[in-house]
Simulated assay, not measured.
Amino acid sequence: MPASPPSDQPLEPSGIDWDAGGIETELGWSLQAMSQGFARIATGAVADVPGGPRGYQVLVAITTEAPTSQLVLAQRLGIDKTAMVYVVDALEGASLVERRPDPRDRRVRQVLPTDQGRALLGAARAALRGVEGQLMRNLSPEEQEQLRRLMARVALDSGAVESCIGVVADTEQPVASPHLSARRRRADVRDTTPPEKSTPS
């Protein structure tokens, strides 16, 4: 069988032949390979944070977004509610966060960072950026920034994507946009009491 004629288009620096349609061109393969590679090198960067990557994400969220409850945090980060309790307990035990009553509704307890928590987050964030640079070492700084922005946009919309058979994709927890209005956030925080069940007549 004669070999296929060489393509007129030169291969990109990575050596991927997009016209061949190999496994490298599949988004699912790329996402999985990136996730596995990131997990291998990033775990050490957040090793000093109780709860590991989940504890790190909690610290990022509570230091960059409006104060909110543990329940809303769990929904925001896509973490199981029970697991979130253990993560916040561990962070609080290390004096990295504290729970305070919400001044608007004292039945709700907000999760807030301490000065010690902010300091540890800064150190962990710097270490994480270093290993992220290793993972993306074959990209220019401009390409790295573009990749971050594109992936963030896709991630924010992923919870609303329907599957190929028309059924809403099954995710552990919905991921809320960080751009929710303050009014919507306050409503979410207050909405922690389950509705009463109707009594059958």
Rank of each mutant, 00 (worst) to 15 (best):
L27M: 05
S95N: 09
L156M: 04
V111D: 03
D102K: 11
R184Y: 08
L73E: 01
A94S: 09
E24F: 15
D48W: 12
P50Y: 10
E196W: 13
R118K: 15
L31P: 04
G159H: 09
P174E: 09
F38Q: 00
G78Q: 09
D157Y: 11
V87T: 15
I79Y: 12
V88E: 01
P141C: 12
R137I: 01
M136C: 08
L139I: 06
R54L: 08
S4D: 07
R149G: 04
H179Y: 13
Q146L: 07
G15D: 03
E143M: 14
A20P: 01
A83R: 10
S7T: 12
L96R: 10
P10Y: 12
Q36E: 00
E65Q: 13
S201Q: 13
A42I: 02
Q70A: 09
D17V: 06
R107F: 09
R125K: 14
S7D: 14
A126T: 09
Q36Y: 03
D89R: 15
S7Q: 11
I79K: 07
A169L: 03
S201Y: 11
A47D: 05
P50E: 05
A45V: 05
W18C: 12
D17M: 11
T68L: 02
P103V: 02
D102Q: 10
L135P: 02
G52C: 12
V46T: 09
A94L: 05
K81E: 02
E132S: 10
A66L: 02
F38W: 04
G21P: 04
T193D: 03
M1E: 08
E24M: 15
I23M: 04
S69F: 04
P174I: 15
A182W: 12
A90H: 11
A182F: 12
P113L: 07
R148D: 00
T43Q: 01
Q57D: 14
S177W: 01
Q57C: 13
K197M: 08
R118W: 10
A187M: 06
T114W: 07
A94F: 11
S35T: 00
R190L: 05
K81D: 02
L150E: 10
V111K: 02
V168A: 13
A123T: 12
A20T: 06
Q144F: 07
D80V: 14
P53W: 04
V87Q: 09
M34H: 03
A42S: 15
V168Y: 09
L150P: 00
P2D: 05
H179F: 14
G22S: 12
T43Y: 00
R183L: 12
A42F: 11
S163E: 09
G21N: 11
A94E: 02
E65V: 06
A42V: 02
G122W: 14
R186T: 01
A83H: 11
V58C: 06
F38L: 00
C164A: 08
P101S: 06
R148G: 01
G52E: 10
D102E: 06
L73N: 06
